[in-house]
């Protein structure tokens, strides 16, 4: 079973994604702060991270940098309410990007592609 870590400020988003992904057969971990995220990444063998970037403060960016250093094999799907092009300007080089307003099915598709091919 693939393990997914959801990092997001919004509790309701975390709950939604947890429900969604567990129904699809993933093991889900969730947290709102980068420090806990780091702990979870160390403890568990996380396959994919759903990382929310809050613009304009870009907290997610720091965690992303850390992951590039220490957990390069873990794939990252950047999530945000901003458009894909705007997200790519903030963090480039992630496995995939998701605009939350596009809905669940597209998210699931992207997650599956990333887990399979490494990129979506």
């Amino acid at each position: 079973m693939k393990k997914i870590l959801v990092v997001d400020d919004e509790e309701k988003i975390r709950r939604l994604y947890s429900n969604l992904l567990e129904t699809e057969g993933f093991k889900v971990f969730e947290t709102s702060n980068p420090i806990d995220a780091n702990e979870i990444l160390k403890r568990e063998n996380i396959d994919l991270v759903l990382l929310d970037i809050r613009m304009p403060e870009v907290d997610g960016g720091i965690l992303y940098e850390t992951m590039q250093l220490f957990h390069k094999q873990t794939k990252v799907v950047v999530t945000s309410v901003y458009s894909l092009s705007e997200q790519k300007q903030v963090i480039s080089g992630a496995a995939s990007y998701h605009d939350k307003s596009e809905g669940n099915e597209i998210l699931l598709t992207k997650i599956r592609e990333v887990l399979k091919d490494g990129k979506a």
């Binding site: 988003i13 939604l16 994604y17 429900n19 304009p56 309410v81 901003y82 307003s101 809905g103 099915e105």
Partner: peptide, 24 residues
């Protein structure tokens, strides 16, 4: 510009939640 970014985030996030929950 800041104002717009804030507005868009503060309105789009609830909408994303509503949409996600409804779809699920």
């Amino acid at each position: 510009t800041q104002f717009s970014a804030y507005v868009s985030h503060e309105l789009k996030t609830p909408l994303a939640i509503i949409k996600g929950e409804a779809e699920l």
